[in-house]
Design a protein around this nucleic acid. Structure first.
Lengths: 188, 188
DNA sequence: CGCCGAGTTGAACTGAATCAAGAAACGTGG
DNA sequence: CCACGTTTCTTGATTCAGTTCAACTCGGCG
């Protein structure tokens, strides 16, 4: 659980008893490659701290589904909007590789938020960080070309990207697999 | 200040003394039409509760600047990422109409977060709400056509949209003013 | 009254979608 | 561990939405 503790402490140094409370609610879980963690229509019960592995976020569609995000190790994952509102999600979570997580249930996290001094502060910062990520991506989608997004992604996460099928990356940067194939050809 | 109070109470019913504290920090402010509220490179000091008016968010560019958002009355506005990190913003805020706001300074809001029971909870929910908005828009940019985005915008905010110059709306939905002009022609 | 920015319209061009087919990689069962 | 079938990736040809450049109209403001 060290990684989870480090993650939280980076946001706000926890008192020992706060961490003990949080840790007691953490549940270790392993998903095999290609496991659907959450189906559309279901309600997200957890936030996941990813020990190792990759989670893909996508809106399923008959032909090519729409991939709009990934979470990697040492980061958190969740259908966060569904989680927050405890309302059905309209997108799915799936592991792309064998993935190990520490997960915490909604009610336990709410307890943590309400009953510890650091709780809501941590919750606030998590929301803020997710927001910043989202707004960056929004600007990227509006202002950059697909090619620029691809190169940035490769620059930012060279190793991790190699584990993700190109068709998902294509969807993520907003183009078809064919178009991505052509961009890659041109670059190399 | 009633609207601000109502806004906060919708998130979390405030105790009277909590509201008194918050209200004491609120500052009323009026901006004329076309006023730049925040310049790139500056640090966002405030969150704004919009009493009436419209704020535009944009990345300035030599030719056509990139408009990526608006805030309307009864909602909050801010260069929230700059505000959170107290770091320079890379986009600007500008009023599109005469705009009246209640604004609260960073340090005062942090006081409110730390010294009231409801504080961090409210901060958390504000972040969460902004996140949900951002993710919806992200999916819209990835999955919908410019025409679909335009029609949705019109459907959701028919009155407010009429006050915004088309060139900003075009940028917001990710196309040029010429392309928007053609879409509008085709629809009507 | 004249000017300037906003909006429209036209024509040529381009990045990416689509449809289609073949090559390569992957995984599952024998 | 190989063989087969399925999925992923590539390549080609065509089509299309939206860009760019340019010219013109309109309405508001000084």
């Amino acid at each position: 659980m060290d990684k989870v503790k480090a993650y939280l402490n980076r946001i706000n140094q926890l008192e020992e008893n706060e961490w003990d409370f949080f840790a007691s609610k953490l549940e270790n879980y392993e998903y095999a490659k290609k496991t659907i963690i959450l189906k559309t229509g279901a309600i997200e019960k957890y936030i996941y701290f990813i020990e190792y592995g990759i989670i893909r976020y996508f809106v399923p569609e008959d032909t090519n589904d729409l991939t709009f995000g990934f979470s990697f190790e040492n980061d958190i994952g969740s259908a966060y909007d569904s989680f927050i509102n405890q309302a059905p999600t309209n997108y799915q979570l799936e592991t792309l590789t064998d993935t190990q997580v520490w997960r915490i249930a909604y009610s336990d996290l709410m307890d943590f938020y309400q009953n510890t001094k650091s709780g809501n502060h941590i919750g606030r910062v998590i929301g803020e960080q997710l927001y910043i990520k989202a707004i960056k991506r929004e600007l990227s989608l509006l202002s950059e070309t697909a090619e620029q997004r691809y190169e940035k992604l490769f620059h930012d996460r060279p190793k991790l990207i190699q584990q993700i099928p190109l068709k998902y990356i294509a969807s993520y940067i907003g183009i078809t697999p064919q178009a991505l194939s052509r961009i890659r050809k041109q670059i190399s």
